[in-house]
Measured scan of single mutants.
Amino acid sequence: NQASVVANQLIPINTALTLAMMRSEVVTPVGIPAEDIPRLVSMQVNRAVPLGTTLMPDMVKGYA
């Protein structure tokens, strides 16, 4: 099963992502692949992401 990127904390809108904000977890539906975590660092979210939410490509500016 593919691990996805999950929010490790509440991430406010327009926040630049850091490693501490993300974790890898096997979830359904599948979100951004966990191997993309290094690429996500310093990218901004375009909405508030609650703790435990799977990051989807449309939630991260410049990812999709």
Rank of each mutant, 00 (worst) to 15 (best):
P12D: 11
S42M: 12
A16T: 05
V60E: 00
T28K: 03
N14S: 05
P38V: 12
P50S: 13
P33C: 04
P38S: 10
I11T: 02
R47H: 08
I13N: 07
M56K: 06
P50D: 13
P50F: 14
D36H: 08
A48L: 09
V49I: 14
A48T: 14
V30K: 04
Q2P: 15
A16N: 08
A64Q: 12
P57A: 12
M22S: 01
E35F: 06
R23N: 05
M56S: 13
K61S: 11
L17P: 02
V60R: 00
A16L: 13
R39H: 11
L10C: 15
D36M: 09
V49K: 00
Q9G: 05
L51M: 14
S42A: 11
V45D: 01
R39S: 07
M59N: 05
N1K: 04
M56T: 10
Y63A: 03
D58P: 09
P33H: 12
I32P: 00
R47C: 05
V30T: 09
M56N: 11
R23L: 05
S4C: 04
G62V: 05
L51D: 10
I11D: 01
A7L: 04
V6P: 00
M22C: 03
V49P: 01
P33F: 08
S42F: 13
T28L: 04
L19P: 04
E25R: 04
A48E: 14
T15C: 04
Q44R: 13
V26D: 15
V26M: 07
L55C: 02
R23K: 04
P50Q: 14
G62H: 11
A48F: 06
P33I: 12
K61H: 09
L19D: 03
P50K: 09
D58C: 15
A16E: 06
T15D: 06
A7F: 02
L55R: 00
L19E: 03
V30P: 07
T54D: 00
V49Q: 02
V49A: 06
T15M: 10
P12I: 09
I32G: 01
L19Q: 05
S42V: 05
D36G: 05
M56V: 14
K61A: 13
S4K: 02
L51K: 06
S24I: 15
E35P: 07
V26E: 15
T54Y: 02
M21P: 00
R23T: 05
P33E: 04
V5G: 02
K61N: 07
V45W: 00
N46I: 15
G31C: 03
V49T: 10
M22I: 09
N46E: 08
L10I: 12
V27S: 08
K61L: 10
I32N: 00
T54M: 04
K61V: 11
A3P: 10
G52D: 08
R39G: 11
A48V: 08
K61T: 07
A64F: 03
V41W: 13
M59R: 03
T53A: 08
T18C: 03
A3H: 10
T28Q: 09
V45P: 03
S4I: 02
L17F: 03
I32F: 03
K61I: 14
R39A: 08
D36E: 14
S24E: 10
I11V: 14
A34S: 10
A20T: 12
L17H: 00
G52S: 12
Q2W: 11
N14V: 03
M22L: 11
R39N: 07
P29F: 08
N14R: 09
N1D: 15
P29G: 05
A20Y: 15
M43T: 07
I11R: 00
R47S: 10
E25K: 05
V30Y: 13
L40H: 01
R47T: 06
A48C: 06
A3C: 04
L19N: 04
I13Q: 06
N1L: 14
R23P: 01
S4N: 01
A64I: 14
A34P: 06
A16V: 15
P50M: 13
P33M: 08
V27F: 02
T54G: 03
R39Y: 13
V26T: 07
I13S: 15
R23I: 04
I11N: 01
V49N: 01
P33Q: 10
G62T: 06
Q9V: 08
L55E: 01
I13M: 10
R47G: 04
R23M: 13
M22A: 00
A48H: 12
T18G: 04
T28S: 14
T53C: 04
T28I: 04
L17W: 00
I13Y: 15
N14E: 13
R47Q: 08
M21W: 03
